[in-house]
């Protein structure tokens, strides 16, 4: 465990909690893509199946359990508890365009052709693009609440920190996982435009709004 990875995990956890708290406190999921949240629930479920097959550490197990539980809680808040506030009309990204190609790619490019490994690989590929319905929604409505921007920033910076973690691990342990690295790079690149808007607007106290 190095500092980049730890901060990455904390940032990921923070993002998930910010979103949950935002929905809970405002009793509304306006501006949040339910589709992205379903994709994240799928990502965690397919990646953490090893919870039942091998134990790594107390930290590892508890973080996995929290991520899974929070992602399902978020989906439940959006599609059940605060369903009336869900902005489905603007959440129109076609998720099959993400799920099908990443599933096919997981079958073709993986470390080992076994069910658990393919599902893990699928989760890595899917995670890299799972935010697209949310970013699409922001670009469609042309704005995002400040708290939603904080959520997106924390979520984006998490994988960026993991990139530094992988550089560190390669240097220190000779460890590298090309699948995770390439997907992590793609994931980070998808956030770049948002990072720019976040730094130039949100951090200066302005609401994130896109030019019409």
């Amino acid at each position: 465990m190095n500092i980049f990875r730890f901060l990455g995990d904390i940032s990921h956890l923070l993002a998930i909690i910010i979103l949950l708290m935002k929905i809970w406190k405002t009793r509304s999921c306006a501006g949040i893509s339910g589709k992205s949240q379903i994709l994240f629930a799928v990502v965690f479920t397919t990646r953490y199946l090893d919870l039942v097959t091998n134990f790594i550490s107390f930290y590892n197990t508890s973080m996995k359990v929290v991520y899974i539980a929070c992602s399902y809680a978020t989906v439940w808040l959006i599609y059940s508890k605060f369903k009336a506030t869900y902005d489905g009309n603007h959440d129109t990204f076609r998720v099959e365009f993400l799920v099908v190609p990443t599933a096919v790619l997981a079958f073709l490019v993986n470390h080992d052709f076994t069910p658990l490994e393919i599902l893990w690989t699928f989760s890595i590929y899917l995670e890299s693009v799972a935010i697209l319905p949310q970013l699409f929604m922001v670009s469609k409505t042309g704005e995002a609440e400040t708290i939603t921007s904080h959520y997106l920033f924390a979520l984006g910076i998490y994988r960026t920190l993991y990139l530094f973690n992988w550089i560190w691990r390669y240097q220190q342990e000779g460890f590298f996982d090309l699948i995770a690295i390439v997907a992590g790079l793609v994931q980070t690149i998808l956030y770049c435009d948002f990072f720019y808007l976040y730094i130039t607007k949100v951090l200066k106290g302005k609401k994130l709004s896109l030019p019409a």
């Binding site: 995990d9 550490s57 590892n60 996995k64 991520y67 973690n165 000779g174 460890f175 090309l178 995770a180």
Partner: peptide
């Protein structure tokens, strides 16, 4: 060398 992931990351 090419290392298969040890899956200790989240």
């Amino acid at each position: 060398h090419y290392l298969v992931t040890t899956k200790d990351e989240l």
